[in-house]
C-alpha cells in the first residue's frame, strides 16, 4: 500500500553566497561589529514550494510539469524524504526508489555489477536478495559485457539504462524519476514505458517529471503543474496537459 499526503507543505531554503560560506569572513565581520563586511551574512531565502496540497494513492501515475525552476525537482526530493518541509505536514507510506539527478547515485569507479549490488543495498535489500535478481536486472539493461567495466566508461544513455533497471527491478512502492525517461534510445524508452506501465498496474505510485508532454500523456493519469513553487493544477492528465499547453506557464 502506497500513499502520499502533502498538507499545505512549504519549503524555504537558504542560498548562501560565497561570503556566508566562509568562517573566516564571518569571524572578521563579527569582530568588527558587522560593519566592515556588510552583507557578508545576508542569505537569500528561496520559497521553493509554497503551500502545496497533494494526495496520491495506489495506481497513481503523476506527471510533473512546469518551467525550469518551477520546483519540480524540489517536490521530488521532498517526496523522497531528502528535503524536510519547513512548514506543513507530509506523510509518505511505501518503499521509495528514486533517480533524481544525472549522477544517478552511481559510483563511476565501480563496475556495473557492483553498482547494481550497491544500489540494492542502499535501498535496504540484503546482498542475497539482490544477487537473486542480478541476472534479471542485467538482462534488462542489455549492457552485456559492459557490466563488468567501470561505470565511468559508460555513455549517459548506458548509465540511465543501468540506474533505471535497478530501481525498477526491486519493486518500489513509490518510484520518483526526474527527467529520466527521455534519456536513452528509442528501444529503451519503449522498454521503460512497458515496465513503468506494469509498475503502475501493480498498485504503485510513480511520479515523474519531464519536459516532454508526450511522455507524460502516455504514461500518466494525473498531472501536477507547478509554477514558481506554487501548485497551479492537480488532476486529470488530459485536462492538465491541455491547460498547460494553453497557458504555457
Amino acid at each position: 500500500m502506497a500513499a502520499i499526503n502533502l498538507d499545505s507543505v512549504t519549503i524555504e531554503f537558504p542560498i548562501y553566497n560565497m561570503d556566508a560560506r566562509s568562517l573566516k569572513k564571518r569571524l572578521i565581520s563579527f569582530s568588527t561589529g558587522g560593519t566592515l563586511l556588510k552583507g557578508a551574512h545576508e542569505t537569500i531565502i528561496v520559497k521553493a514550494l509554497d503551500n502545496i496540497n497533494i494526495k496520491l494513492e495506489n495506481n497513481d501515475s503523476v506527471g510533473l510539469i512546469g518551467s525550469n525552476g518551477a520546483g519540480k525537482s524540489t517536490l521530488l526530493r521532498l517526496l523522497a524524504g531528502i528535503y524536510e518541509p519547513t512548514q506543513g505536514k507530509m506523510s509518505v507510506k511505501g518503499r521509495i526508489s528514486t533517480i533524481l539527478d544525472m549522477s544517478l547515485g552511481l559510483n563511476p569507479e565501480a563496475t556495473g555489477y557492483e553498482n547494481i549490488i550497491m544500489r540494492g543495498i542502499l535501498l535496504g535489500y540484503t546482498k542475497k536478495q539482490i544477487l537473486a535478481k542480478l541476472d534479471e536486472i542485467a538482462e534488462f539493461t542489455e549492457l552485456g559485457g559492459y557490466l563488468s567495466a567501470p561505470v565511468r566508461t559508460y555513455s549517459t544513455g548506458m548509465m540511465v539504462r543501468l540506474a533505471f533497471s535497478v530501481v525498477t527491478s526491486i519493486e518500489p512502492e513509490i518510484l520518483l524519476l526526474d527527467e529520466i525517461v527521455g534519456a536513452g534510445d528509442a528501444g529503451f524508452i519503449e522498454k521503460a514505458r512497458t515496465r513503468l506501465t506494469n509498475l503502475i498496474k501493480n498498485s504503485n505510485i510513480v511520479v515523474l517529471s519531464s519536459h516532454s508532454l508526450e511522455i507524460i500523456e502516455q504514461l500518466c493519469n494525473k498531472v501536477i503543474i507547478l509554477q514558481k513553487g506554487q501548485l497551479k493544477f492537480f488532476g486529470d492528465c488530459k485536462e492538465g496537459v491541455e491547460k498547460y499547453r494553453k497557458h504555457a506557464y
Binding site: 556566508a20 551574512h41 542569505t43 537569500i44 531565502i45 528561496v46 520559497k47 521553493a48 525550469n68 514558481k228
Partner: peptide, 10 residues
C-alpha cells in the same frame, strides 16, 4: 522564477 525575500540570518 522564485519568490525571493532577503533576510538576515544572523
Amino acid at each position: 522564477i522564485y519568490t525571493v525575500q532577503k533576510v538576515i540570518v544572523r
